[in-house]
Write a protein that binds this DNA or RNA. Structure first.
Length: 569
DNA sequence: TGCGGCTATTG
DNA sequence: CACAATAGCCGCAG
C-alpha cells in the first residue's frame, strides 16, 4: 500500500540501515519499507512531495547521507531541543522528557546487567512507560528492532515536533524562533554532509609544508624520537645546563633564568618582546612552532584525518558550546594559516569562499535595535562612522566596540567605552542588561530563541559569602552572558546563511566543505563558479530577511573564487 | 587514569 | 591576552 503525502507536509521518519524505514505524515499517512527499498522510497518521496522530514537527531541525518539521500527540508528534534533548552545535553530520552514537561532527573537508565540480554523491548511495557518517560530499552536500540517499532518511533517524533512547535510559538518577543529552529535543523543536516564530504586536501603539498618545519616523515618511532632530540638540541646548545625538558614550562622558566631573563609565563607573545635579550629566545620560538606541527598538525594528523580520497574529515556539531556555534574536530576550525595552501579544490572545480564582514557589531546593531548603530552598518566599514562619532581613531573605535561586546573594563578601549555609552546608549544598554542578568545567574535567550543557561554555572562550591572569589565569578558570568547574546545571534545568522547556500548550491552540484563561524567554503564545479558566487552573495540578504525581518541593518560579505583556500583574502 | 594548568592555533 | 572553540603534553592526585 502506498500512502500519499501533501507537498511540504511534515513527515516523521525513523530510519535504520539494517531494519528499514518508517514514515508518518502529520495528516496521518504512513508507510514502512524493508532495508532493500528504504533508501529508494525515501528518495522518491523527497522528489515527489518534498516534505519537511522530522527525525530524532544527527544519527538519522548521518544514516540518510550515507545512504545517498540529501533532503532539502528537515526538523531535527535534537537540534531544536538544544535551541529551546540550552546546553549540549540531548538525546531522545531528554528530548522526550522536555517535550512532555517531565523532570530530566527521572529519566530511567538500564541497569548494567540488563545490557547483556537486551534483544527487544519488554513485552509487558510499551515505549512510553507509566511514569511518562521513554523505555530505556527502546532508546538504546529497541526502536529499530523491526518495522513496527520504527513506525512507533516515527509517531513519537511527530508528537515531539508538535510540542516543540508550540513551545517556539510561545517564546516571548521572538518571532524569528521558528525560522531559527528550521535553520538549526538544516545546519545539523549540513554537519552530517560536512562529515561525509570532507575538506579537499592536496596531501603532497601538506607534507611539503610540514617538512619545512620538522623535516621528512620519520621512518619509525625511534627515528621520530631522534628527530625530536635534534630539535631540542638546537635550543639547548645555547645554554648547556643539564636536564631541561622544553615541554615543561617550569623547566623553560629556569632555563631562561640562566640567561638572566625572568618571566611570569613563557607564552609566545611575551617571549617575542624579549627577542634581543638572548639568542635562545629565537631558537625557543622556532622550536615551539616546530613542536606544534610535530604533535598536532604533522604526519600523524594527516594519516589519521585525511582519507585516501584526499578529504580531511572531522566530527561536526551544529550547536555546541556556550552560544550555539558550530564546532569541528580534526583541526578543521584551527588549521594554522601556514597549512592553508594545502587546501585545494579538486580538478575541474573551484572554491567559492566568502566571509561575513564585521558580523558581530552588525549583529549588535540588529539585536539591540540601536538606530545610530544601525545607521553605521550602512558603511562598508562600520568602525569608520563610529570613530567619527566618538572623535577617536578607527583602531580605538574598533577596540572599544569589541571590548564592549567582550566585557573588557581595562585598557585603551575602556576610555572610549564611555563615548560609546553616550553615542549608542541603546546598544550599550542591551549589553549591560545581558551582563547584569547573567551576573545574577539568570538564564538568557538569544534573538533567535536559544537559551543560554546561567543558573547551572553558578555553583560556587565552598566560599564564605560575597568575597573576591564570588565577585570575580559573577563578573566572569557577566562577560560570558554579554558575549553569548552577540556570538550566539551571530551563529544563528551564519547558519541561516549557510543553509540557504547549501540548498541553492546543491542544484549546481556544489557543496559546502567548510564552515568557519563567519566564513563559508563552497566546492563548486568550475563552470558553476559565477552562479554559486551569486548564490553566496544573495544568500546574505536572504538570511538577513529570514533571521530578522524588517530590520534596517546592512550585512556584507567578501566573496572570491579561488583554487586554493590561501589565495583568498 | 583522570583532571587542572599551560601552551598554541583559529574566529 | 577580554569572548568562544579543539588539542597536545606535563605534573599531580588517586
Amino acid at each position: 500500500m502506498t500512502a500519499t503525502f501533501a507537498p511540504g507536509e511534515c513527515v516523521a521518519v525513523a530510519f535504520h540501515p539494517g531494519t528499514g524505514a518508517a514514515v508518518v505524515g502529520e495528516h496521518g499517512g504512513t508507510a514502512a519499507w524493508p532495508p532493500g527499498r528504504a533508501d529508494d522510497e525515501i528518495a522518491r518521496l523527497e522528489r515527489s512531495a518534498g516534505p519537511r522530514w522530522i527525525w530524532w537527531g544527527p544519527d538519522t541525518a548521518r544514516a540518510l547521507v550515507a545512504a545517498g539521500v540529501r533532503p532539502a527540508r528537515c526538523w531535527d528534534l535534537d537540534a531544536v531541543h538544544r535551541l529551546l533548552h540550552g546546553g549540549w545535553r540531548s538525546g531522545p530520552a531528554r528530548v522526550w522528557a522536555a517535550a512532555n514537561e517531565l523532570d530530566a532527573a527521572g529519566i530511567p537508565t538500564i541497569a548494567p546487567v540488563d545490557l547483556f540480554h537486551l534483544e527487544s523491548p519488554d513485552a509487558g511495557e510499551g515505549v512510553v512507560r507509566a511514569d511518562g518517560h521513554l523505555d530505556p530499552g527502546w532508546v538504546e536500540g529497541g526502536w529499530h528492532a523491526d518495522l513496527e517499532c520504527l513506525s512507533e518511533w516515527a509517531e513519537l517524533a511527530l508528537q515531539v515536533q508538535r510540542a516543540q512547535d508550540a513551545a517556539l510559538a510561545e517564546l516571548d518577543r521572538r518571532p524569528a524562533a521558528p525560522a531559527t529552529a528550521r535553520a538549526e535543523s538544516a545546519a545539523s543536516l549540513l554537519c552530517a554532509e560536512l562529515e561525509h564530504d570532507g575538506l579537499p586536501i592536496e596531501v603532497p603539498t601538506a607534507e611539503a609544508i610540514i617538512a619545512t618545519y620538522i623535516g621528512p616523515r620519520p621512518t619509525d618511532a625511534t627515528d621520530e624520537a631522534r628527530l625530536a632530540a635534534v630539535r631540542d638540541e638546537l635550543v639547548l646548545r645555547h645554554l648547556p645546563i643539564g636536564d631541561i625538558d622544553l615541554r615543561n614550562p617550569a623547566n623553560v622558566k629556569s632555563l631562561l633564568r640562566r640567561a638572566g631573563i625572568e618571566v611570569p609565563d613563557t607564552r609566545a607573545w611575551r617571549l617575542e618582546q624579549l627577542r634581543d635579550r638572548h639568542p635562545i629566545i629565537e631558537a625557543l620560538l622556532a622550536w615551539r612552532k616546530a613542536e606544534r606541527i610535530a604533535t598536532t598538525f604533522g604526519y600523524r594528523w594527516l594519516d589519521e584525518h585525511v582519507g585516501p580520497d584526499g578529504r580531511l574529515r572531522g566530527r561536526w556539531s551544529s550547536s555546541d558550546g556556550a552560544a550555539g556555534r558550530m564546532t569541528a574536530t580534526a583541526g578543521l576550525h584551527n588549521l594554522p594559516a601556514e597549512l592553508r595552501p594545502a587546501v585545494v579544490a579538486e580538478s575541474g572545480r573551484v572554491f567559492v569562499r566568502a566571509d561575513l564582514g564585521q558580523i558581530e557589531p552588525r549583529i549588535l546593531a540588529a539585536v539591540s535595535g540601536d538606530e545610530s548603530l544601525i545607521a553605521a552598518t550602512l558603511d562598508d566599514d562600520m568602525y569608520a562612522p563610529v570613530a567619527a562619532r566618538l572623535g577617536v581613531t578607527r583602531d580605538i573605535a574598533k577596540v572599544a566596540v569589541l571590548g564592549a561586546m567582550y566585557g573588557q573594563t581595562t585598557g585603551q578601549g575602556a576610555v572610549a567605552l564611555r563615548g560609546l555609552e553616550s553615542a549608542y546608549p541603546t546598544a550599550m544598554g542591551y549589553l549591560d542588561d545581558a551582563a547584569r542578568r547573567a551576573e545574577g545567574g539568570n538564564d538568557l535567550r538569544t534573538r533567535g530563541g536559544r537559551r543560554v543557561p546561567m543558573s547551572a554555572s553558578t555553583d560556587s562550591g565552598n566560599d564564605d559569602g560575597p568575597g573576591r572569589e564570588e565577585r570575580s565569578r559573577a563578573a566572569a558570568r557577566g562577560r560570558y552572558g554579554r558575549n553569548a547574546m552577540i556570538q550566539g545571534a551571530a551563529a544563528e545568522f551564519f547558519k541561516t546563511w549557510a543553509v540557504i547556500v547549501r540548498a541553492r548550491a546543491a542544484t549546481h552540484g556544489a557543496q559546502i566543505v567548510l564552515c568557519l563561524h563567519d566564513e563559508l567554503l563552497v566546492h563548486a564545479p568550475g563552470d558553476a563558479a559565477d552562479a554559486v558566487r551569486d548564490i553566496v552573495d544573495d544568500g546574505v540578504q536572504e538570511a538577513r530577511y529570514r533571521w530578522s525581518p524588517g530590520a534596517g541593518v546592512r550585512f556584507v560579505a567578501d566573496t572570491s573564487v579561488v583554487s586554493r583556500w590561501s589565495d583568498a583574502k
